[in-house]
Design a protein around this nucleic acid. Structure first.
Lengths: 211, 211
DNA sequence: TTGACTAAACTAACCGGTTAGTTATATTAA
DNA sequence: TTAATATAACTAACCGGTTAGTTTAGTCAA
């Protein structure tokens, strides 16, 4: 039995691969790698499941591609902020890169938090190199700032955590805060700009302030 | 619903229930709710799978118990720090409560990060109340500090994120850092005390410092 | 007797992944 | 011009294995 006229996919619509990618990113963010279901991903993308295996190697391969894509995008944002600018500007740039990425790709914070919880099990070597590069960006900014006597000595790891932690948590907890009891004013609307400004201020206060 | 009376027979080994609880917490932290496997949890606890369903309602019920237990423990730690102490001490107490909990129950940070990523899907009403109480502790400390003109006005959510984010991330990323390339000195040994001191300092610097 | 437990079989649903076959479009050979 | 062919994109149906959860039958100690 023929169905009613097979829909012609207009050029304007994103391709099957792109739609699968987006649907998978949403599913992985919401349910995790093990919790996400390839049948439902395909359904959400409006294609047959076999197409997922036509365009991607496997569920794990698709996930790995999403991971790499995420971090390469962050690295690209970082590269856009002049790497030779002064240390404080580089710290601010890091905060902004993470926050803008989280805004542009809503699946980014949740997937990243999950990957941390899982000990980076799905992070392949290439992706790990990208991540290391991103963190290195912060570490060298701190080092340069200390060398220029603009920053007081600080453990780079603590600075990284002080930036990535709050920013990721802010975006990742958004769905939860919406469900939280309203008596607690956790749901207060905060703009991305306010979060960026706050984390930038805290990071630099820590680095520039007195002990 | 009747809770089984906790009359444990004196035995050298920890009870079956306790071992199941511990094995499940480890599995849920490492693999997430969907990724964890009840057969393997039972095997890790050294008991038959049927015992899991004898002691707990279901996989979801077991997970919910672990969640509640985690947050009740944090709340208990917080309650131990005099709630009428000065605002700065209460902020410091929050940092310490989270960090000590993470140290005492290694599954705590990973499970909590996953639950955030999942939008609190598994958090029941009672557990949510405990969580709200914990966050409220920070919010009122900020309010009191502002009222006493010891703190400058600050969004409570940003203060909470600035404490919980870095501390959770520090402990949760530990397994990942161990696997990270050694050229990056991310694996530098930081003690819990150092992390506590740093996050306390940053939080109070933000609240007490000048704009 | 009863509560705590072992061992193992069982089920119904679900999962990731494969397969054989179909359709649309473009290319090429006569 | 047109018929044969190539190729990419697609589908329905299926497959073997795994999963949470149940059940049955029996052990053991207080």
């Amino acid at each position: 039995m023929k169905r009613t006229a097979r829909r012609r996919r207009p050029r304007a619509e994103p391709g099957t691969r792109t739609r699968l990618f987006a649907a998978a990113a949403t599913a992985f963010a919401a349910r995790g790698f093990a919790g996400a279901n390839v049948d439902r991903i395909a359904e959400a993308a409006g294609v047959n499941k076999a197409m997922l295996y036509y365009h991607f190697k496997s569920k794990a391969g698709l996930y790995a591609e999403i991971l790499r894509d995420m971090f390469e995008s962050v690295a690209a944002r970082l590269a856009a902020t002049a790497p030779d600018s002064d240390p404080a500007a580089r710290i601010r740039g890091m905060v902004e890169a993470i926050a803008r990425e989280a805004e542009a790709r809503p699946h980014f914070p949740a997937i990243w938090l999950r990957e941390i919880a899982e000990g980076g099990t799905h992070v392949d070597k290439g992706t790990m190199a990208v991540i290391v590069g991103i963190l290195q960006h912060v570490a060298t900014a701190v080092q340069d700032g200390v060398a220029a006597k603009r920053f007081r000595p600080a453990n780079p790891l603590l600075v990284q955590l002080g930036i990535v932690g709050p920013v990721l948590m802010f975006f990742a907890t958004a769905p939860m805060r919406r469900r939280a009891p309203s008596q607690l004013h956790l749901a207060t609307q905060l703009t991305t700009e306010q979060v960026i400004a706050h984390v930038q201020r805290v990071a630099l206060l820590t680095l520039e302030g007195q002990p």
